[in-house]
Amino acid sequence: MVETAVVETALAGLDVEVRVAVDAPAFRRLTERLIFDLVIVVGVGYLLSGDAFFRRVRPRPMRRPEIYLITHQQSEQTVMGLLECGVDQYMTFPLNLARLRAKVIGALERA
């Protein structure tokens, strides 16, 4: 919960609509109704759960929306594996809020 609050606070004041899904079923419901410009995933648990996350979020063969992953995992192999799966930006905790905000602004301008 604190990690989600941190990411929400980093995006406060931006001219964007932020939706938060606290678990996999909530995320599935959101993706059924909405198309996102950017998806920020906190933690790797959902990506490794067996749910077809990338196929759910991105229609083939598009590379949109961009997917940012923020996690505590530092291992080189984990990072490489997730980048190969389709993650666009990989960030680790502790998080630099100003950097996250700047990346999000840049991604939304490109979208």
């Binding site: 604190v2 990690e3 941190v6 905790f93 502790p94 998080l95 630099n96 809020l97």
Partner: peptide
């Protein structure tokens, strides 16, 4: 717990 989580999660 909140303060500890903030220290671990946020840089600087």
């Amino acid at each position: 717990e909140v303060v500890a989580a903030l220290r671990v999660t946020v840089y600087g």
